[in-house]
């Protein structure tokens, strides 16, 4: 793209009354422009394309390098991180309009901000942690094969950004489905040599209503995950383990 070009940002805003409306902003293109730099431009000059001064758009952001998970939003119809959405790449097939909306599967706070606290509650539910004896010096941790680390590391990069929840057709008002991210965390902690010791607690937490069995296998999660986490594999592994436990677990009691 060239200097002098104008990109139109169509942004879904909250109105005072609770309903929503769209504001359009014309923003000059600049090298390495992304959705965040455009939103920052609006902060400095919050004027719509029809010349009206409005309140700057509000959104969540922090690291701007796709590692904190803050800036998830729906951009041109697809959920993604605003920081790594480069305008040149987004509009490579032409066009000069970018639509930005908040995620829809979480309660709306304002403009592009939604309340994702249910995701952190889900991490409590599945006990996504090692049951550590304490932080005093107990010597080295368990040895692990490099292959184990190579399986765990990609799972451990989940930023709790919410993209998988937003894209999932099984997460809706009439379904309590927990979401792919939490299932993948069960797999992660059940892989770890000491995490394994509490594997059944996590499998029990992810069984039943809203658990892994509620996945409808649409596979949208893996499509939208910004960190390319093998979420579908995780669902398969955890699904198999919960099934095994349901079928044979009583034998071990």
């Amino acid at each position: 793209m060239a200097e002098g070009r104008i990109i139109t940002f169509k942004i879904k805003r909250s109105s005072a009354g609770g309903e929503s409306h769209w504001d359009e902003f014309d923003i000059p293109w600049e090298p390495q422009m992304n959705v965040i730099s455009a939103l920052m431009h609006i902060q400095r000059t919050p004027k719509t394309r029809d010349g009206k001064t409005v309140a700057p758009v509000v959104w969540e952001q922090a690291c701007l390098e796709e590692v904190c998970g803050s800036c998830s939003m729906v951009i041109n119809g697809r959920v993604r991180q605003a920081c790594s959405t480069l305008i040149d790449a987004l509009l490579k097939d032409g066009g000069s309009t970018v639509t930005v909306e908040p995620m829809t599967k979480f309660p709306l706070v304002r403009d592009l901000i939604v309340d994702r606290s249910r995701m952190f509650e889900a991490l409590k539910k599945v006990k996504a942690w090692i049951f550590l004896d304490g932080t005093h010096n107990l010597g080295p941790g368990p040895r692990q094969a490099p292959e184990n680390q190579e399986e765990a590391y990609p799972l451990s990069r989940c930023m709790t950004c919410g993209c998988c929840v937003e894209a999932c057709p099984n997460v809706n008002d009439s379904s309590p489905f927990i979401g792919a991210f939490a299932i993948s965390q069960v797999r992660l902690f059940n892989l770890h040599p000491s995490g394994k010791m509490n594997a059944n607690e996590r499998l029990d937490a992810i069984s039943g209503v809203g658990g892994v069995a509620d996945c409808g296998k649409a596979q949208n999660c893996v499509e939208v995950c910004p960190k390319e986490i093998p979420l579908v594999d995780s669902i398969a592994v955890v699904g198999r383990d919960t099934l095994k436990r349901a079928l044979f677990g009583w034998l071990l009691k």
Partner: peptide, 15 residues
Amino acid sequence: HLLDRMGVPFNRTPE
């Protein structure tokens, strides 16, 4: 070592 015990997926040697 503590972080390792907490489950940080540190890179490993062949051993």
